[in-house]
Write a protein that binds this DNA or RNA. Structure first.
Ligand SMILES: Nc1nc2c(ncn2[C@H]2C[C@H](O)[C@@H](COP(=O)(O)OP(=O)(O)OP(=O)(O)O)O2)c(=O)[nH]1
Ligand SMILES: [Mg+2]
Ligand SMILES: [Mg+2]
Ligand SMILES: [Zn+2]
Length: 590
DNA sequence: GCCGTTTTCGGCCCGACTGTTTTCAGTCG
């Protein structure tokens, strides 16, 4: 299996060869663009090749597509191999060092004949210790020290953090920044502002009339462990916690263009700048420059920045360099679902104790209802896991489920009596495992007594694409099963999405009026944004849930909404924006 | 190497910071 990540890595290596051997900057960039595009695909490039759609990937043209075809057919690409042989293989290992790019990596690998990728880093360390590296022209003391420390830290594997991890770290820093006298405004930008599921670094921006003072104060934040680089408008620090933070700074007059630039994404920026070029305008974080007169056009905020280009304001979640520019030109950016549109949460676990197949909730129904009232919900749905499938008699399971229902209803009536107003309606459902063969892990006669069922995969994640597709569709065929829970099963940084034919599953959901969950648990965010987009495009409905096991987790709804927004989801695509009456008909209860 | 409702040739986003160097290349965001 040739993965997208492997392809992207190889294309980057070939790009590096073109850079150092041919100094061909544009061909280098073409290969990098293709690498980025393939890395960001959700569907595997191999699948696209089988469908004859490789050149539909932006940045992949006939040449690269031809090379990839050779790779899929024969297992190797002669052209790539020839190109990569033009440099010592050790060079590629050095590219992973921060601050070391193709030029420096090549100089070292070439001079010291680093032919083995595996030993290259070790050899460089030895060359530093023996002082030989300083014999290279351009390798001063500081550069060598930088390489040395970068190699050390490169051994600590860095992965992207969850959005939920980045948010409190950034908030604490922002609270500090906003407390400074010279800081007019401060806010998170980059992937954090675009609400990407995982975040590489934390990008913060400061608006000030006194840049020097403000930057000086910003770097004095008590959690700063190390200042990596610092300048008048940009600094980079590493916190004691290990988080890396970019701080950018601008005058009030440039604030709008700074927000735009630093929110990204990179691809969005590049496309926007190319578009501006056609209008003789040049964009940067400093503003909009008229290329004929050289005048900088002043923009106060992002709205007027986009307006100057004839574009409507694009929500940060959509700024990924896909079709957002085309739609903004036509003023056709949809208005996306918002947290305040949500009228209930249908995937929560109660604290009822029984022989569960997985885990139990921890909060009382009374606490859950209090929180739901705070959130102005009209309804909530409790979807505990099905009882253990094996080892319990049907009679026992029935007893358990009846007891659960009775207890919850009794508690609910007591709550109604006590609180009286704005009590959210209660639905009693279950989250039922989809077994390997697509059967539900609960007997038919026990399912019929539920208000609704969520079907979820919790095992056998490694089944083939065809097997997963079949079992999901089979499970969704049950009349009580209306929602497919956390469809891909991914756990960010821990477990990949299952393989499945999402196009077919989405089509099935649309035709049969089934609903795909957008699970807002921060480690899931599942459906992922790109599949949300596929579902929305194809007219399938979504349900944004939290999967909460205790009251505080009901706030995960925001993460689900952000993920849905990144998938171009509007209010009308989401069933839990409906009134209770309309929701009941979606659940086939009326 | 990619790409095109002004182009199939001739462009390709733009700027900050660092280090080592007298004017800029390399790397990164
Ligand atoms: N115009 C332009 N802007 C860039 C470029 N690289 C980065 N930016 C802008 C857009 C990015 O969203 C922003 C922050 O850069 P980052 O490298 O932190 O990327 P981002 O936060 O989007 O993703 P991340 O999660 O940090 O990997 O800076 C570039 O090459 N050109
Ligand atoms: Mg970032
Ligand atoms: Mg950054
Ligand atoms: Zn689950």
């Amino acid at each position: 299996m040739i993965t997208n990540a492997e392809i992207a890595q190889t294309l980057r290596r070939v790009a590096a060869v073109f850079d150092v051997k041919d100094n061909d900057h544009f061909r280098t960039r073409a290969y990098q663009n293709a690498a980025n595009a393939i890395e960001n695909l959700t569907i595997s490039a191999r699948d696209l090749w089988e469908q004859g759609k490789l050149t539909e990937i932006p940045g992949v043209g006939p040449n690269i597509a031809g090379h990839l075809e050779e790779w899929f057919k024969t297992g190797k690409v002669r052209h790539f191999e020839t190109e990569m042989k033009r440099v010592p293989a050790g060079m590629f290992a050095l590219l992973g060092i921060r601050g070391v790019g193709p030029k420096i990596a090549y100089k070292i690998a070439d001079k010291f004949k680093l032919d083995d990728e595996k030993t290259a880093l070790k050899k460089v360390k030895e060359l530093i210790v023996s002082g030989k590296l300083s014999s290279l022209p351009g390798f001063g003391e500081k550069l060598i020290h930088k390489i040395q420390t970068s190699i050390e830290s490169a051994y600590v594997k860095e992965e992207r953090m969850l959005l939920s991890e980045a948010l409190p770290v950034s908030k604490e820093y922002l609270d500090y920044l906003l407390s400074l006298p010279d800081v007019i405004e401060a806010q998170p930008l980059g992937s954090l502002r675009r609400r990407v599921a995982t975040v590489g670094d934390i990008d913060l921006a400061i608006c000030t009339r006194k840049p020097k003072e403000a930057m000086g104060e910003a770097l004095k934040y008590k959690e700063v462990g190390e200042v990596i680089s610092t300048g008048e408008s940009v600094s980079r620090v590493k916190l004691k916690s290990g988080h890396e933070i970019d701080i950018k700074l601008s005058h009030p007059g440039e604030w709008g263009s700074l927000l735009q630039h630093y929110t990204g994404s990179k691809l969005h920026n590049i496309l926007l700048r190319s578009f501006a070029h056609e209008r003789q305008l040049s964009l940067s974080e400093h503003g909009i420059k008229d290329q004929k007169t050289g005048n900088i056009i002043n923009v106060k905020n992002e709205k007027s920045f986009y307006a100057h280009l004839g574009l409507s304001l694009i929500p940060p979640e959509l700024r990924e360099g896909e079709e957002e520019l085309e739609l903004a030109k036509k003023n056709k950016i949809p208005s996306l679902v918002e947290l305040s549109d949500i009228k209930g949460d249908l995937h929560m676990h109660s604290d009822f104790e029984y022989e569960t197949s997985h885990d139990l909730g921890r909060s009382s129904l009374s606490d859950v209802l209090d929180k739901a009232r705070d959130l102005s919900y009209e309804y909530i749905g409790l979807a505990d896991h099905n009882p253990k499938f094996q080892g319990l008699s049907i009679a026992h399971k029935k007893k358990v489920l009846d007891a659960r229902k009775n207890k919850l209803l009794t508690q609910y009536r007591e709550y109604e009596k006590r609180v009286k107003t704005r009590v959210p309606k209660l639905l009693i459902g279950l989250e039922i495992d989809i077994r390997k063969d697509g059967e539900l892990a609960l007997e038919e006669e026990l399912i019929s007594d539920l208000d609704y069922a969520i079907a979820s995969i919790h095992s056998n994640f490694e089944l083939s694409k065809a097997e997963n597709t079949t079992r999901i569709i089979k499970a969704l065929g049950h009349s009580k099963v209306v929602i497919l829970g956390h469809p891909t099963g991914r756990m960010l940084n821990q477990r990949n999405s299952i393989e499945a034919d999402w196009q077919a599953i989405i089509e099935f959901c649309k035709v049969n009026k089934k609903v795909l969950e957008v699970n807002g648990a921060p480690a899931r965010l599942d459906l992922p944004d790109d599949l949300v987009k596929m579902a929305v495009r194809n007219g399938a409905k979504l349900c944004i849930d939290t999967d909460s096991h205790e009251v505080s987790q009901m706030d995960f709804m925001q993460f689900g909404v952000w993920t849905a927004r990144r998938g171009w989801c509007t209010k009308s695509d989401v069933v839990n924006t409906l009134t209770f009456r309309d929701l009941q008909s979606v659940l086939r209860l009326s």
